[in-house]
Design a protein around this nucleic acid. Structure first.
Lengths: 155, 155
DNA sequence: ATAGATGCAAATATTTTGCCGCCTG
DNA sequence: CAGGCGGCAAAATATTTGCATCTAT
């Protein structure tokens, strides 16, 4: 799905749920769909202010909550850090997170099939499974290299 | 590993890292190892105050950070909510989380083998994988039943 | 026209930090 | 007895809420 189609999908979903499409919301949706990083509310606010300088952070949070409600953004929460948002790929999928530079990448689901495993869990636990989350933590190639270089310099 | 052994392991790890074993820390470690729930800092503080009424929440956080540092507690963070801690099972393992009552259960790793999948990710991404996290969200049997009953009453 | 949205500020919630007196090792 | 630790309060961070004004439908 290309970016424009994705934006239209989100807009329709909002409208159908009875929400208004304001310029600020429109802009936020576009920003969300453009970014393949996984921005925080603050980062989204910074970008939004470039187009609407008076926009408040509260509006960003309110809009994000609305988008969560209609299922068009996924929120990824971490302890001691702010939450990250992903609208380009609202369906559950695993993330690869660099513990050094905080970069968050999507993992190609082709590589990993958690769904079949999740079903097994449902059967044995009696839970009705709604979604899942999988994060893999590590050092990205860039940070590995930087650490190797700084170690070499120190010795 | 039984609870007493686990407590001793944590205590040794702290001592070896040069940290002191104070009565408050001892008590917190015991509380952590006893609970199979996944308590928050506030809940731990409540329990700790039963034995040491003057204990402050700051001390709980400081001790938890020390324990994280030596790798003897795992912190599980959520957006918009407080972090939960798990010392009984510090190795990475999946969690089953009820979105209604916030209960967090451990998933028997026998049911699920994320490690093999995680290795595949390492190969293809160039990341050095350090750990992973997997959460499955759903409704626990109890909450399913409660929802069914309240719906029946409403109709 | 009007229900709902924005933006500002203040409130909440969670976690961290500074400082001082106390206690463990 | 010395440096680390506990406790208190204040700060820092992240998110939500109240309210007056404005606007999309």
């Amino acid at each position: 799905m290309d970016e424009e189609t994705r934006v239209n999908t989100v807009v329709s979903r909002l409208r159908d749920a009875g929400y208004r499409i304001t310029p600020q919301r429109m802009a936020l949706i576009e920003i969300l769909c453009q970014s393949d990083r996984h921005p925080s509310a603050g980062q989204l606010h910074e970008q939004l202010k470039q187009r609407f300088p008076t926009t408040s952070l509260a509006t960003v949070y309110k809009t994000l909550n609305v988008l969560k409600e209609v299922g068009e953004v996924m929120e990824i929460g971490f302890a001691g850090s702010d939450a990250r948002y992903d609208s380009a790929h609202p369906d559950p999928h695993p993330h690869l997170i660099c513990v050094q530079c905080r970069r968050i990448e999507d993992i190609d689901v082709q590589q990993l099939k958690p769904e079949s495993q999740v079903e097994k869990i449902a059967e044995r636990s009696g839970y009705r499974i709604l979604s899942y989350r999988m994060d893999v933590y590590g050092l990205c190639p860039r940070c590995q290299q930087e650490m190797a270089e700084s170690q070499a310099a120190a010795s």
